[in-house]
Write a protein that binds this DNA or RNA. Structure first.
Lengths: 180, 180
DNA sequence: TGAAATGTAAAACGATCGCTTTACATGACT
DNA sequence: AGTCATGTAAAGCGATCGTTTTACATTTCA
């Protein structure tokens, strides 16, 4: 049962650096040292492993965000900066998978959509903690800054995350002043 | 010389819908009806065609943005909405190519970085037109909203573009009030 | 007219793909 | 002790990959 996790972790780092469709199973299994036989025993297919990797990825990411505390929105971006510093900036793995498997594996496309909905619920929660009420448009704006910073960091330096953070906090502050 | 352009246009729509690495040359050439022989005569390799597609894409996109007029920043997002409505929402093709060819074709990675720098210069120009001075941080924030909306539209509906636009205009307005 | 340029159609190249199979090693648990 | 689960190693499956090649049709223009 431990090997399964090793394969997921190893495959995740390979997919991260090389993309999904352009990488063969041998390269995907190399980091964990697993044989192809074990791959098909555990996951049924290459795409099955990809799905497992994406599910693990989303769990890791959501966990790592922590819970809202003194600065619910700002800490969202602190978490992103920490994540990118340790994992590297390659763009959002979930969206990358979605775009590579569009028209080839609808289960993966649907999975990513659900994961992004999940993430949006978390952001809405942080907004409520920050301004004391729901504000769907503000939540979406913070989401866009978050996704924008994630994408931009792959072609610019990590300072874009702090810049996104200040934009988000400015929008939150403006929403806090004005009545609903 | 016309066939070359047909191949680029046809390949672009195939890459857009199916991604880059997961699509064979036959599928890429199908829309233009060109033979593989013509492909290698014009572009030397499959990757050569990919590069030509990306260059054409960037040109099309930058042209379509038009020139700053009454609302330099807001019109950036109007243009994005128009673009996504006609081309479909699959995420930024340039960033998608970058992430698929990372570790496999450094020329493509470098090309996309240059294209994004180019786009950032255009945004900085719009910011100057809007507030009468340079503001690099504000320009980056508008860029992040733009990239965020482009990415988000692939998993949410097109209304995210209007929401990004309002965030951008709010940030610009705040920058216009306060002194540098 | 006739050679050069530009195109399609189709077969075939070796390499690699995702996947299956056979054979064998290791521990764990009743 | 012996079975069962879990693993590696390695050969091989047919299919498909990017690319090259051969053969032939068409336009262009000196």
């Amino acid at each position: 049962m431990d090997k399964r996790h090793d394969m997921i972790v190893g495959a995740m780092s390979t997919f991260e650096a090389q993309g999904f469709r352009g990488t063969g199973v041998d390269a995907v299994l190399a980091p964990s040292g697993a044989s192809t036989r074990t791959l098909y025993k555990h996951f049924g297919s290459r795409d099955g492993l990809v799905q497992a990797v994406l599910e693990q990825r989303h769990r890791d990411f959501m966990e790592q965000l922590g819970t809202a505390r003194s600065d619910p929105v700002g800490e969202l971006f602190s978490a992103l900066e920490r994540w990118l510093a340790t994992h590297g900036s390659y763009g959002c793995m979930l969206l990358r998978a979605r775009s590579e498997y569009a028209g080839a594996n609808e289960a993966i496309v649907a999975l990513v959509r659900r994961q992004k909905d999940d993430f949006n619920r978390k952001i809405a929660c942080r907004i409520r903690a920050a301004i004391g009420r729901d504000d769907p448009e503000l939540a979406t704006q913070v989401w866009l800054l978050f996704e924008g910073a994630t994408a931009a960091a792959s072609v610019a330096d990590l300072s874009v995350v702090g810049i996104a953070r200040r934009a988000a906090l400015a929008l939150v502050k403006a929403a806090k002043v004005h009545a609903p």
